[in-house]
Write a protein that binds this DNA or RNA. Structure first.
Length: 806
RNA sequence: GCGGAUAUGGCGGAAUUGGCAGACGCGCCAGAUUUAGGAUCUGGUGGGCGACCCCCGUGCAGGUUCAACUCCUGUUAUCCGCACCA
């Protein structure tokens, strides 16, 4: 009754939020007798739009976990920070002529206020910010270590160039040939770029997934992205006497190779220039291919094009046949050796190409009709027309021919990955400066560690340039420096790091955020890492999540971190969609602002609804009218104040329900099933109201169980009831398996699997007694009268099934 | 094409090992209270009938089983990731 008069949501929630901060209850200690638990959510990019209701889904879910783990006696680290370098801020700064540093500061203030209004138990004393020089000092330090270990290198290469951001993109940032961020065209541009050798870790990034508790779709997606394939490299001699190596996953089909295809960028073409009779035509094709954007190149994937290199042929090592060599853009320079042997009988692309250019198709695996369509099945086919391989299965043929090639010195087994090295330079202002100096004498020279952080200079105009240079290049004074090695005049690197740099190691900094002599102390890292539970969006699976695993493995290799992998467990939340079931976005006009929800319903209700909305891993449409259910639940909880009676043990009629609810809530939180945990609490509350009262023991338990979801109202009730202390420092309730059982249960009685009666029986009833009771039931007795009973089943506590002949 | 998922009332969603389909909530209906509206409370709510009996019902078609949302085979639709990766 009179809920509003007694419980003023705004002031109560504010009161507890302030008290938590003042008393530092959520500050984690780096030394503790308790077991540690490091609980992590992806730190946000503080955009100008503020949070929308999607952000708190992840934060609330792990806040519930963190709060429950504390009640269970763990020393919990649940930190938050800001991933603040990046383009949107820079673009906003350009447009509004405000320095990005100021924009960032304002955005962070807004985000922080929003997060605090939701009552998350973050340890704000460990707040980090990737744009803080004390932070990016260590981002730069890691880069220097990568450089020192040969994993950062500069290379002239064709890169993805976003025409609107005027900036290079990593492969991971290009979606359907368009810029992931602004959807503008991405074209190829040859530029000198800093690269990180993530490919060196490809094998370990795949293999070590096996030991991790990551949800399967994350593992699958990473494996897919790294794209390991096994096959063989085969050396073909050319008629000019040199060797061309191809990569194939089907060495078994070598006898069916009737031509060869090089990518248009293959270096052999230059080498053979004077021998190629149709060099003009070849050049024209190369130029046309180079002009195509990635998007065009994949879009036209139906129609195969190409040009034969006149005047040179390749020799098939197994049968010495001279076969034509083509160039075609269906062969990629960056995969394998940039050259393939074409087996039109058994590869779809080669078949299309052969049909178009009227090239011979030879069947070497029996099982299909290669004139009609390529036969690509590896399971059932038998080798034909294949010399020493004839009669073997595909699997055996692969082994035999690979061994033969090795013996002959004409090939070897080979493993290839789709993963490419990570393009690490960005021609923009708002990022970490790359701490490298280019000296005409000494080449690329790293800054000494003592000169870190290399601060981002203050600058008036941070607009991107059209010539592909970073805005920093205009700062002559800053650019011109001396070589740390020889002391002569030299120039600084003017590109900055990509947005993904700061987030590739941020979780480590939380363990010791104010350390100024190391990225974190060894003790802190030993104590806290790896992260016990990391939740984040699927969209980061092949970006941040992969990059940070790579950096972590590197840091492990050089002895900085104690664990091979950064995250022991990874889960992922589904998106919150707009009310219309579409993705929430400004342009669709369906964005819900959490501030409005907190204002109208309070943080506790907001949190409950975020968790109750549905299966955590699936996307779910927001529905403001459904929030009422959660609102009513908090009100009904508060109204328990009016019906409290004395009692220091669960009443008999509710004891079992309490034990079952404790079990359910405990297990569901661990399994990210907050929706059913809340449903169980609602159910128990309904049961309590049916009895017309709640005693103090019951109210204590209920309040603690609800606390992780609705921390403010539970603390307030606890205080008003004078239970002593705060809920946050209570022990989590315990249940006993024994007491979860009810003494009597309702079972159903089936005849041939159809329900015909219901009985209430003793929970411990024996099978034969249950069946006897069932048969004694009037309806059942009638149904089985005069029928032959074939079989009888009793499933304890569930049902009796009597099978009769009809 | 490859990889991953999903399909259950009007809606969001439950169903731990094959064992009562639809928990919990929204919405809706009826009643109470209220000057009215709103709010709150009580009861009802998968379909075939208003009630009984009974029948039907978890994308579709088969199968296994005493028993199938759950297992198997096939199939359709939707979503996500990758994609000329040899």
């Amino acid at each position: 009754m009179c809920f509003q008069m007694e419980y003023d949501i705004k002031s109560v929630e504010k009161k507890w939020q302030q008290r938590w901060e003042e008393t530092g209850v959520f500050h984690a200690s780096n030394k503790s007798e308790k077991p540690k638990f490091f609980c992590l959510v992806e730190f946000p990019y503080p955009s100008g739009n503020g949070l929308h209701v999607g952000h708190p889904r992840s934060y609330t879910a792990l806040d519930v976990v963190a709060r429950k783990k504390r009640l269970e006696g763990y020393n919990v680290l649940y930190p938050m920070g800001w991933d603040a370098f990046g383009l949107p801020t820079e673009n906003f700064a350009i447009k509004n002529k405000i320095h990005p540093g100021i924009v960032t500061k304002n955005n962070i203030a807004r985000f922080k206020a929003q997060l605090q209004s939701l009552g998350f138990s973050f340890d704000w004393s460990r707040e980090i910010n990737t744009t803080d020089p004390n932070y990016y000092k260590w981002t730069q330090w890691i880069f220097l270590k990568l450089f020192e270990n040969g994993l950062a290198y500069k290379k002239e290469m064709a890169v993805n160039w976003c025409t609107s951001c005027k900036c290079v993109l990593a492969n991971e940032e290009v979606v359907n040939g368009l810029c992931e961020r602004c959807n503008s065209d991405v074209v190829r541009k040859v530029k000198s770029q800093w690269m990180l050798k993530i490919t060196e870790y490809a094998e370990r990034l795949i293999n070590d997934l096996d030991e991790l508790n990551f949800i399967d779709r994350v593992k699958a997606q990473q494996k897919n992205w790294i794209g390991r394939s096994t096959g063989a490299e085969v050396d073909f001699k050319s008629t000019l006497g040199d060797t061309l190596t191809v990569y194939t996953t089907r060495p078994d089909t070598l006898f069916g190779a009737t031509y060869m295809v090089l990518s248009p960028e293959h270096p052999a073409i230059e080498k053979w220039a004077e021998h190629i009779e149709n060099m003009d035509e070849v050049k024209a094709y190369q130029e046309a291919a180079a002009r195509k954007s990635d998007f065009e190149r994949t879009e036209v994937n139906k129609d195969k094009t190409g040009v034969q290199l006149a005047g040179v042929r390749a020799i098939n090592p197994v049968n010495d046949k001279k076969i034509p060599i083509f160039i075609s853009d269906y062969v990629l320079v960056s995969y394998g050796t940039g050259a393939i042997m074409a087996v039109p009988g058994h590869d779809t692309r080669d078949w299309e190409f052969a049909k178009k250019f009227s090239l011979p198709i030879v069947e070497v695996v029996a099982g299909g009709d290669v004139e009609q369509e390529p036969f690509t099945d590896c399971e059932t086919g038998v080798m034909v027309n294949s010399g020493i391989l004839t009669g073997l299965s595909v699997e055996d043929a692969k082994k035999k021919i690979t061994a033969w090639l090795e013996e002959q010195g004409r090939g070897k087994p080979s493993v290839q990955y789709k993963l490419r090295d990570w393009v690490f330079s960005r021609q923009r202002y708002w990022g970490e400066p790359i701490p490298i100096v280019l000296c005409p004498e000494c080449g690329y020279v790293p800054l000494p560690e003592s000169e870190l952080p290399l601060k981002l200079p203050t600058i008036d105009s941070f607009e991107p340039t059209d010539n592909g240079e970073s805005p920093l290049a205009k700062l002559t004074e800053w650019v011109n420096t001396t070589c740390p090695h020889c002391g002569k005049p030299a120039k600084r690197e003017t590109d900055t790091m990509p947005q993904w740099a700061g987030s590739s190691w941020y979780f480590l900094r939380y363990t010791d955020p104010h350390n100024d002599t190391a990225l974190a102390s060894k003790e802190a890292l030993d104590y806290w890492t790896p992260v016990d539970w990391y939740n984040g969006g699927m969209e980061h699976t092949t970006l941040h999540l992969l990059y940070s695993r790579f950096w972590h493995k590197f840091l492990y290799d050089i002895g900085v971190v104690p664990s091979k992998e950064p995250y022991a467990k990874r889960t992922s939340h589904g998106m919150i969609l707009g009310e219309n079931g579409e993705k929430m976005s400004k342009s669709r006009g369906n964005v819900v602002n959490p501030d409005d929800i907190v204002n109208a319903f309070g943080a506790d209700t907001m949190r409950l609804y975020e968790m109750f909305i549905g299966d955590f891993e699936k996307s779910a449409p927001w529905n403001t009218s459904s929030i009422k259910g959660c609102k009513r639940f908090t009100e009904r909880f508060w109204t328990l104040n009016d019906i409290v009676v004395k009692g220091d043990a669960y009443r008999e009629n509710l004891e079992s329900a309490f034990h079952r609810t404790i079990k359910k809530v405990t297990e569901d939180i661990d399994n990210l099933k907050a929706n059913t945990a809340i449903a169980a609490l609602m159910s128990l509350l309904n049961d309590i109201y049916e009895t017309g009262a709640i005693n103090r023991a019951e109210l204590r338990t209920f309040t603690i169980l609800l606390n992780p979801f609705a921390p403010h109202i539970t603390e307030e009730l606890w205080e008003r009831q004078g239970f002593g202390g705060v809920v946050t420092s209570q022990p989590w309730p315990v249940y006993s398996e024994e007491k979860c059982k009810e003494s009597t249960v309702e079972i159903v009685v089936q005849i041939n699997g159809k329900i015909r009666a219901r009985l209430t029986v003793d929970a411990e009833i024996k099978a034969e007694d249950a069946i006897t009771r069932a048969k004694a039931d009037e309806a059942i007795a009638q149904a089985i009268e005069g029928k032959a009973i074939v079989k009888e089943f009793y499933v304890p506590g569930k049902l009796v099934n009597i099978v009769i002949k009809p």
